[in-house]
């Protein structure tokens, strides 16, 4: 594709807009975005506001949510729940991932059970969590844990198993004792896997916290979305959904950056 449009002459200002290159690409993207907004506007003018509000109304809905402090309150509650859930699943996921990946008999004994739970749609744990932990914050943290723990655990465990072949044989050849290998080889080598696991875990923690707001106590961002949906306040609902998208995206991009920063060698492999 790109081979077909070779650069032939010095680009003029017009050619910069129509010829190949990043400028043209961005022109197309921006034009497409405007077309999308326009299509939304046109579609919204012809249906009830409860079904599809105009972009302007969504914007006003967002302003209203912020003014009343609904969004701030909801995200505040959500942040606390996610932070607690992530802390627990990060600690358990990484520690168990390393130990179970490193000691094969433990892996054999425990992995079939964990594999089984991994195959279960975690939403099915909601009644069990309600039975054990009620519907409040503890229950939500448990639900978040059930979503994010497995992502972190399996990523780290598989990481340990992968690096085993590559680096552990080196350590063996140079007579390094096992605990030193764990400390000086395994722990640094799994950094990229831990980072990937944390990123996946956080995305799943967001899924868990939203579902927690739907099916456990109705608070946080999930509760807000649920309440706005049941009241048919569609403009504000869409505004709230945009914040979820934004947070999800920011979390992902931020952790991607951090991943490349902490383990730059992974990039070239």
């Amino acid at each position: 594709m790109t081979l077909a449009h070779g650069k032939t002459a010095a680009p003029t200002r017009l050619a910069a807009l129509t010829g190949p290159g990043p400028v043209r690409d961005w022109t197309i993207r921006v034009a497409a975005f405007c077309a999308l907004l326009l299509a939304w506007q046109l579609a919204a003018q012809n249906v009830s506001v409860a079904v599809l509000p105009t972009p302007r109304r969504v914007w006003e809905g967002m302003a209203g949510l912020l003014e009343r402090g609904d969004l701030q309150l909801a995200w505040g509650q959500t942040a606390v729940q996610v932070a607690a859930g992530m802390l627990l699943s990060a600690v358990f996921g990484v520690v168990l991932g390393v130990l179970i990946g490193w000691f094969k008999p433990v892996d054999d004994a425990i992995s079939p059970l964990l594999n089984a739970v991994f195959l279960m749609p975690r939403i099915a744990l909601v009644p069990l969590i309600a039975l054990w932990f009620g519907l409040q914050d503890t229950a939500k943290i448990a639900l978040i844990l059930s979503f994010s723990f497995f992502e972190i655990f399996f990523t780290v465990r598989n990481g340990v198993k992968t690096i085993e072949n590559e680096f552990v044989e080196v350590a063996k050849a140079y007579c390094i004792p096992q605990w030193t290998v764990l400390r000086k080889v395994v722990l640094p080598a799994i950094t990229p896997y831990v980072m990937t696991g944390l990123r996946l875990g956080l995305v799943y923690a967001l899924v868990g916290v939203v579902l927690g707001g739907f099916f456990l106590e109705s608070n946080g961002i999930g509760g807000l979305i649920y309440a706005l949906g049941s009241d048919f306040r569609t403009a504000e609902l869409i505004a709230a959904l945009f914040t979820v998208m934004l947070v999800g995206l920011a979390v992902n991009l931020g952790l991607h950056r951090l991943e490349n920063l902490l383990a730059p060698w992974k990039v070239t492999r």
Binding site: V203, L206, V207, V210, L211, F214, I221, G222, I225, Y226, L228, G229, S230, L237, L241, V244, M245, G248, L249, V251, N252
Partner: peptide, 9 residues
């Protein structure tokens, strides 16, 4: 990369 399940309502 976002929790799409949130759009269910």
């Amino acid at each position: 990369s976002v929790p799409l399940i949130a759009v269910v309502p």
